[in-house]
Simulated scan of single mutants.
Amino acid sequence: MSRAESALPGRVVAAHGRHYRVVLDASPAPRHCYTKGKKAGPAVGDRVLVLPEGLNEGVIIEVLPRRNLFYRSDAQRSKLFAANIDQLLLVLAAEPEFSDDLLGRALVAAGSADIAAHIVLNKADLPGTARARARLALPESLGIAVTTLSALDTEQTRARLGPVLQGRCTLLLGQSGMGKSTLLNALVPEAAAPTQAHSEALGTGRHTTTHTRLYPLPMGGDLIDSPGFQAFGLQHLSAHDIEQGFPEFAPAIAQCRFYNCTHQHEPGCGVLAALARGEITAQRHALYLRILAENEAARRY
């Protein structure tokens, strides 16, 4: 019998570096697994084939075809967040102040992979919440739902997010310090994720999650928790992928004179015309240009 024939199917439920926990279809007990070689490893949520070793270990020999893969990338490395997800739950807060640029990039990554996004504005008891909520008018105008709550209120959190999460595989994502771990604990008490206050001196959060892990939800479905981030490169996206991350461009792109229009300076560009009419915001178009320029510069070097 070949190695492939001896391998058993399973699902990756945790990842830390090149070490993984996999739950095999045939057994609920997770196995501690690793990969061989230098090829890209699996992500949490991946379906894989595992060659068992001993009582509770194994070698991942193949990653099975994915529905999608959500990740960020820059010149140094790629960070795989999760695979085969149904939606992205982006956690923001008034304090520390969230970045519009990082929020926009995460939404572009989701849009390019055809993954639905939902925003949670956490820490609703803070005085800056109204101003933070107003800043979310732009993504909300793009059809992205926004839920405001305090994750410290467990009952409220479960009541408002339960219908959003039920029966779906959801990636929990956020900048450091947004209260993501508190939200996770409200939804999955057994997670017992460590929490700590953000640094008031720096106005930034500290990473409390160090690895990615999948948790079954009591109401059905799964929640994948991932480390907080302070950067979100998108160098893996092609120019077409970047366009896909801006769904509001689609009607205007159909009006472009040239099929290979970059929507930067070309005559007869439908996107630039829509921008001039106020149908596309200057903020979103500027983000599009930044991502495009970064990726072009990265390819040159």
Results as ranks from 00 to 15, higher is better:
Ala117Glu: 11
Pro227Lys: 12
Glu294Lys: 09
Leu92Cys: 13
Gln244His: 13
His16Ile: 13
His211Tyr: 14
Ala192His: 14
Ile253Ala: 14
Gly17Lys: 06
Arg11Tyr: 01
Gln156Asn: 04
Ser2Thr: 13
Glu296Phe: 04
Arg299Pro: 01
Thr129Glu: 12
Gly162Asp: 06
Ala26Gln: 06
Pro194Lys: 06
Leu272Val: 04
Leu64Thr: 08
Met1Asn: 06
Ala40Cys: 05
Ser176Phe: 00
Ala132Gln: 07
Thr210Ala: 13
Leu24Ile: 01
Cys169Met: 07
Tyr20Asp: 02
Ala151Asn: 01
Ala293Tyr: 02
Leu103Glu: 05
Gly203Ser: 10
Ala94Glu: 10
Pro127Lys: 09
Asp241Phe: 04
Ile242Ser: 07
Leu103Tyr: 06
Asp241Ala: 12
Thr170Trp: 00
Arg133Ile: 00
Glu140Ala: 15
Gln196Leu: 09
Glu155Ala: 13
Ala93Thr: 05
Gly203Lys: 08
Arg18Trp: 00
Lys36Val: 01
Arg257Trp: 03
Ala130Lys: 13
Leu107Ile: 11
Leu287Pro: 03
Val59His: 14
Arg135Pro: 03
Ser78Lys: 14
Thr210Val: 10
Asp241Asn: 10
Ile144Tyr: 04
Gly228Ala: 12
Gly58Phe: 09
Gly270Thr: 06
Ile119Glu: 08
Val271Ser: 04
Arg300Tyr: 02
Gly143Met: 10
Ile115Asp: 03
His16Val: 12
Asp125Gly: 05
Asp153Lys: 11
Gly111Ala: 08
Gly270Ser: 09
Pro28Ala: 03
Leu69Arg: 08
Gln255Asp: 15
Glu243Met: 11
Glu53Tyr: 03
Phe232Ala: 09
Pro96Leu: 05
Gly270Tyr: 10
Ala273Ser: 14
Asp153Ser: 10
Phe98Asp: 07
His265Val: 12
Thr262Gln: 14
Leu8Trp: 00
